[in-house]
Design a binder for these strands. Structure first.
Lengths: 333, 333
DNA sequence: TTGAAAGCGCTAACAA
DNA sequence: TTGTTAGCGCTTTCAA
């Protein structure tokens, strides 16, 4: 920059003004400086700028694992929206390791990102402490952080209770009598809400939730496969399974087919998320569609609002609309 | 930092020394400074450090789109290895937009990342110009950049020609007579090598590559589905299809089944990549396994080597081993 | 409309 | 073993 200034016969301040389009600067000088910048292939250092302006124009993003399509789609929504607003994404894939989650949180603070979008794997006290003392904006997706002395952390989500209620209601209305569940991360608020919906709709229809029909898993194919295999040994096997993700649904379907049974003829399957795979799988999967890309978009927009104005009414939890999508993994009984 | 120094009664230099473990500093002073750092919850600014040291410890990563499992897995391999080596990843998802590719390249230069790992969607002259003038390390995955005045850009890949040859050879040996191909990005070197392998093995077995059996697509499900539908109208339909990705394979399978035919009974399908879905799909997909995570790992290791020593013999193209995995989407005829 | 100068928070000679 | 000092490359008052 100094070189540009010298060559143009102006001061660094002037060069800075033309780069950032900060008025005032005469047309004549601007032209001249721009020409010299181009000629010398000069690239301003965004590091120096960040140091001086105390903003980085990057937001930190913490996710459990990209191998889960939910998160890769979320990242897409966030990246796209970030870019549209002049921000960029510093991605932290924690591989579901609690230790890495804290490491990355601290790293993002050191890196002085302008805000953090957080989707943790397991909520810990250390994380809560971090949130308590962190002074820049934090937004979560599908996670609720509350507690003593905790600032308000906007969360982007769907109405998991209602979505779950509707999905199971559909199964009941289409004649299913014995409906099981494959859940995941059972202490997670998302999971809790969904299970609540499931139990409530059974209750409202005078059906009982058989505890042996509730399978725990970890949002991985294999866990669903194993869990489904176990439940199939049950002499009184279910006629439908509601899975808390599409990936879990594929595991359940595979297990059923490997056991010589058919989907949906013997057992109906409902998934959750509507990842691209859901409609392509064979059979295509009936599922609860979450607007994942939009959730990322809204999360990023909320971040932007928080950065600009510290107390706007656009800074709040956002509940997006879900949609129940009927495909070929369910049948009328 | 100044505050810490004042409170500890030492100079900033000393504080810097204890933070970075740069000798020498007496045990006594170290303890004291560490205590004060902890007490005040002091977090050093990595921006200021970067400015001063002229290194950021972040590498820029440009990929076409995370919705493709190949790339999300690649990102995982790169992230993991980066972290193990003290680096972090600045992710740029270009959504396959050529304009964004150049924007991100320029951005990474401004951000002064220490190196770039590049997997472009379409190679352009502007990209080549960038590479020519960029002075920091660049490594590619599955992409070859060559040309007048171009520096050597290490590329991480498998032997696509051989992999393709073997896959089609397997089909021939298991009795298939009419073998088609669904390729993607046909001007890409990867694709060219694979098609060469396909044609060569047909040739070596005195079979002719019927041009109407070669379908162009864009690495998306829908393109494969549509292409497969078209080829099924062919009165002389193929008895096997070799698809250049697993996602394309799922599209082909879906099309075949929707047409009332069966996989593999009527048509065998071979994929490429071995994304996690391949073994879970129904039928599970016979495929060429690429060590995607490892490709990311090796790319990142190569980057590290380039950063440390400018001319090491470990800075070279790397060809990793592939593996042909037989599953249920192929059959002996 | 422009320039001089201070400062962002750190590192790294060099001196003590 | 420690402190002093001069940057790193930019932005931003304040004065001219």
């Amino acid at each position: 920059m100094k070189d540009i200034a010298r060559e143009a016969g102006v001061s660094k301040a002037t060069v800075s003004r033309v780069i950032n389009n900060t008025n005032p600067v005469s047309e004549e000088v601007r032209k001249k400086v721009e020409k010299i910048i181009k000629k010398n292939n000069y690239i301003p250092s965004s590091i120096a700028r960040s140091l001086s302006k105390k903003e980085t124009k990057v937001i930190g993003l913490i996710i459990p694992d990209l191998s889960n399509s939910f998160y890769s789609e979320l990242v897409r929504g966030i990246s796209r929206t970030a870019h549209n607003n002049g921000y960029n994404v510093f991605l932290c894939n924690t591989f579901k390791e609690t230790k890495l989650e804290m490491e990355f949180l601290n790293l993002l603070e050191e890196k002085e990102v302008d805000a953090i979008i957080l989707t943790t794997f397991h909520t810990t006290e250390a994380q809560k402490d971090f949130i308590r003392r962190y002074k820049k904006p934090i937004v979560t997706v599908n996670r609720i952080f509350e507690g003593e002395g905790m600032p308000f952390v906007p969360n982007i989500d769907i109405d998991n209770y209602k979505a779950s209620y509707e999905a199971v209601d559909y199964l009941i209305k289409s004649g299913h009598k014995k409906i099981g569940v494959i859940r995941a991360d059972k202490d997670d608020n998302t999971c809790i809400d969904r299970l609540r919906g499931y139990k409530q709709v059974l209750n409202d229809n005078l059906m009982i939730a058989d505890e042996s029909y509730i399978i725990d898993s970890d949002f991985h194919f294999q866990a669903a496969y194993d869990g489904m295999m176990k439940i199939l040994k049950n002499k009184n096997r279910p006629d439908a399974m509601f899975c808390f993700s599409d990936e879990l649904a594929t595991g359940a379907i595979k297990a059923i087919i490997d056991s010589g049974l058919k989907v949906p003829e013997d057992i109906s399957i409902v998934g959750f998320d509507d990842i691209p795979l859901a409609k392509r799988f064979i059979p295509s999967i009936t599922t609860v569609k979450q607007p994942i890309f939009d959730m990322g978009k809204v999360a990023m927009e909320t971040v932007c609002n928080m950065i600009i104005k510290k107390d706007d009414d656009r800074i709040a939890n956002v509940t997006l609309n879900h949609e129940f999508v009927v495909r070929n993994s369910t049948i009328n009984r």
